[in-house]
């Protein structure tokens, strides 16, 4: 039993990091928005890493999963607000987000996961744009007019609760998604799924010869990562903002941010996405204060330098440094 628990000890630094972050946010309400933004990046990186970091496949259409998740929550509140479900709407919204993102990931995965490496990346690059035009063109859920559902939420749960839901609980849910993503990552790492993913990331043909049904494991990682993205969209975007426009949520910019966060922190590591998210989120925030308007111009070369000099990411380097020490059990 002890040994069994010890396998999962690397979750401790993760929980510590999220606990400290949440604590700072609660202690300094003025900084809550910054903390919420950092938590969003942590969750985004952690969810994205579960697929990209563990399989080595880069999904450029990833933000589409956040987008359909956002719509899952929106649809629940917009259409069911007068059914007397109260707070149950939120749970239905989260469930719909999971269902929508699973559906989309199966559809995308069935085609794109047959392709390898760069071909997969190219095949997925159009997914978010395609889905955006599909929603707009087919006028699904009000098409390009989007859905504004703050009124619906107020009617369903009352003014006070609606306020707390979008200003506090939405962000706390984001922390929840981040923790869930970290736990799933570690559980996968410690089980056959993780070993299969490592093998196929390193050499897909050799993995098959070893008896690994690579398609099955790729799909498992893809769906898990997609559902986490869906839940993240439902809480960080739909519940927090109480509106959704297709051009906002199917925006490739967020996929690029996810890639940067994972690479900065260390692809395939557990702690990496958190470190990457904190570095990225904090520097973006402070650069915007120090040099407003120029932050992206400055940020781009910094990221290029870091990624060229440290391809394994921050945690990748740290892991090498602590090999053979007691810390090895906690930092992976």
């Amino acid at each position: 039993m002890m040994r069994h628990l010890q396998k999962y000890s690397p979750i401790l630094p993760v929980l510590l990091a999220y606990g400290v972050l949440l604590g700072i946010g609660l202690a300094y309400p003025g900084k809550w928005q910054l903390i919420a933004q950092l938590a969003f990046y942590c969750a985004l990186g952690q969810a994205f890493n579960l697929f990209m970091g563990m399989t080595g496949y880069v999904d450029f259409g990833y933000v589409a999963f956040l987008g359909v998740g956002t719509y899952g929550m929106a649809v629940s509140i917009y259409f069911l607000y007068d059914k007397g479900l109260g707070i149950g709407l939120i749970f239905i919204g989260l469930a719909l987000a999971a269902v929508f993102s699973t559906g989309l990931s199966l559809a995308v995965g069935a085609v794109a996961l047959r392709l390898r490496g760069a071909y997969f990346a190219i095949a997925t690059i159009g997914v978010n744009e395609g889905f955006r035009y599909f929603v707009e063109g087919a006028r699904i859920w009000n098409g390009a007019d989007g859905m504004i559902f703050s009124r619906h939420l107020r009617k369903a749960v009352g003014r006070e609760t609606a306020m707390t839901l979008s200003t506090q609980w939405a962000d706390i849910l984001v922390f929840g998604v981040a923790v869930l993503a970290a736990i799933l990552t570690l559980v996968y790492m410690r089980n056959k799924v993780g070993y299969a993913l490592t093998a196929l990331r390193e050499d897909e043909d050799a993995a098959k010869v070893m008896g690994i049904n690579v398609t099955k494991f790729k799909i498992i990682a893809f769906i898990t990562s997609a559902v986490l993205a869906g839940l993240l969209g439902a809480s960080a975007w739909a519940l927090k903002l109480t509106y959704v426009y297709p051009e906002d949520v199917f925006e490739i910019h967020y996929t690029v941010e996810a890639i940067i966060i994972v690479l900065l922190g260390g692809a395939g590591t557990l702690l990496g996405p958190i470190v990457g998210a904190l570095i990225y989120g904090a520097s973006k925030y402070f650069l915007a204060i120090v040099l407003p308007g120029f932050q992206l111009l400055i940020f781009a070369p910094i990221i290029i330098v870091i990624i060229v000099l440290f391809p394994e990411g921050t945690v990748g380097i740290l892991k090498k440094k602590i090999r053979g020490t007691a810390l090895e059990k906690f930092i992976i």
């Binding site: 056959k192 070993y195 299969a196 490592t198 093998a199 990331r201 390193e202 050499d203 043909d205 050799a206 993995a207 070893m210 008896g211 690994i212 395939g268």
Partner: peptide, 19 residues
């Protein structure tokens, strides 16, 4: 064609796990 980032022990264990 060993799985480069995995340790020697993990490489061999992968054979046992999926063979």
């Amino acid at each position: 064609r060993p799985f480069a980032s995995a340790t020697v022990r993990e490489n061999i264990a992968i054979g046992g796990m999926f063979g």
